[in-house]
Design a binder for these strands. Sequence first.
DNA 1: AAATTTGCTTTAAACGTTTAAAGTGATAAA
DNA 2: TTTATCACTTTAAACGTTTAAAGCAAATTT
Lengths: 336, 336
Amino acid sequence: MKKIGLKEIAAHVGVSTALVSYVLNGQAEEKQVGKEVAEKIRKAAEQLDYRPNQLAKSLKTRRSNTIGLIVADINYRFSSGITRAVEAEAKKRNYTVIFGSSNESSEKLQELINVLINHQVDGLIVVPVENSEPSILSLQRSDIPFVLIDRHFPNVLTSNVMLDNFKAAYDSTEHLIRQGHEKIAFVNYSAQLFNLQERTRGYLAALSDHGIKHHPGWSLEVRSTHTEADMRKAIPHLTAINKCDAIFFATDRLAIAGLKEIVQLKILVPEDISVFSFDESEAFELFSCPISHARQPLEKMGKIAVSILHDLINKPKVINQTYLETELVIAKSCRE
Amino acid sequence: MKKIGLKEIAAHVGVSTALVSYVLNGQAEEKQVGKEVAEKIRKAAEQLDYRPNQLAKSLKTRRSNTIGLIVADINYRFSSGITRAVEAEAKKRNYTVIFGSSNESSEKLQELINVLINHQVDGLIVVPVENSEPSILSLQRSDIPFVLIDRHFPNVLTSNVMLDNFKAAYDSTEHLIRQGHEKIAFVNYSAQLFNLQERTRGYLAALSDHGIKHHPGWSLEVRSTHTEADMRKAIPHLTAINKCDAIFFATDRLAIAGLKEIVQLKILVPEDISVFSFDESEAFELFSCPISHARQPLEKMGKIAVSILHDLINKPKVINQTYLETELVIAKSCRE
DNA sequence: AAATTTGCTTTAAACGTTTAAAGTGATAAA
DNA sequence: TTTATCACTTTAAACGTTTAAAGCAAATTT
């Protein structure tokens, strides 16, 4: 069964490919194609089950109607949420998504960027990973439109849609303070990622603004590579030694690891200690009490990212940096 | 800054595009390209930062080196696991993945298939959804290689990589029986999906093979659209009324919903009742005790799917149906 | 000296589209 | 009758590659 192209339809109807192209692209009116001819062409296309070759189309029009999406790890709840939103919004705007997962490796990220560029994506949505600054810089030099999502580099000017991590952490901490907590601990990863650092900054600012002197023993960093082991030391350090009355975890993965340890030590939430998490996790669903957390608007982030990218693709390039607020989901894990 | 193509390199070096193409595709030897010329070409490509246009390449070679992946919902842990594996294996074999999520809608699935075919994917990996049989049948008629994953239609002959759902459910049930449980409940979705029905069949067969008479009150179906409400009735029905000593949930989502209700009712696991789940969930991590479950080999499934597809793309088409076994992860949620 | 081989390079068509430009025959205006 | 306009259609080049075939000069064999 031969592939059906414009040529086959043209032959079938007895006209040139140009006419077929016009009709099938909705330019029948504009190009004044004869009414019956147009009808015949449409019918033939239908009947022969014509499938336009998007590659040829893209090659000619220099538009692939394709955007690349690179997430840090598709297994993160954050990533799948973003992916879903991006895909939906992209589809609405008639883009197809080419997907890649860097698995937090900057080399893999660079490779993916190359592959996607070779595939002539019209634009790129990227969640950058640690040490990927050079890749982003080189992206910037090529003239592919792109927008960063969730993470960015403070000294590289890019379009991005971000959480206001500082504010989210600030508000969350403030919430804990208002609830009457006095010794609020903060657990973060020992990573250089800007948005994680912003969370630390927000935490410290809230304490300071409320006249609470930060005790160095209250905030800890654990390694992402040895989370479990580090957490095993961290929790007793914060509870038994520093007598903290609340722990604010900088990510959901940290909260899970921390809660496991807390359960292990038979510490009760919220009776013995309050717990607050940045981001939610499916894991919270079955914890003994619902966990208060700052919720990221994934749907919105994905949607906005596509929207910004779309503008970038079509209009004179203007840097667009959108900061979104988180919603605080207050649950029983924080004692009043 | 003009786009660099073969032509630009050719002009820069002072040769024809043919030579450039040969060299850059590793056919320098074969085509007996002069050594210094080859070197000059490579250098120029490097220096001008040449990016081959994959679209043009594909158009000419009739190979896009692209495969389409359509999952049912990227937010499922199952989907993201498969996606990660597929992407990794695809990359190894030099394919790029174009991604789509049908969100359990058969119309969306059909649309996605069309888009991907128009993008000239070399093949397709699909997790079909309910009522998508017509789409799969039409896929079969076109001659795009494809493999189904996780789900399939028993009366449509396709290549697929599947779990042996019957065996997995059988083995799981048998495990519960061996542990001494006598009244084993089974909770499934009221869906027509073949693999879910296979799980029910496996459960029933195990009971029967061990001389246990199945009591109709032991197995229940809840609606995916009203899981919570249905589950609220289901759990008391199984515990208080039918005095079951174990509940086997047919999916992880069901297990989560069930466990929530169980916690609500202050029923203790495993003291009051044993719980077994098909598939695991991040949510189990923070439950009061680890949940026994049948684990799906996601990595393997994704990898094999790509491997089968790759064969399908390159060799005379042979139907390949691979059934994988699950691993039983035995934990404390089942009383001995 | 002519013919063949060798080593390297170019030519040109093709993949399936799009689209500006040119072509055509009929009708209307001059 | 000539010319212009109209309504429709075709021609052909182009997008960036690949690749069979042909070309060509120097070296080697007859």
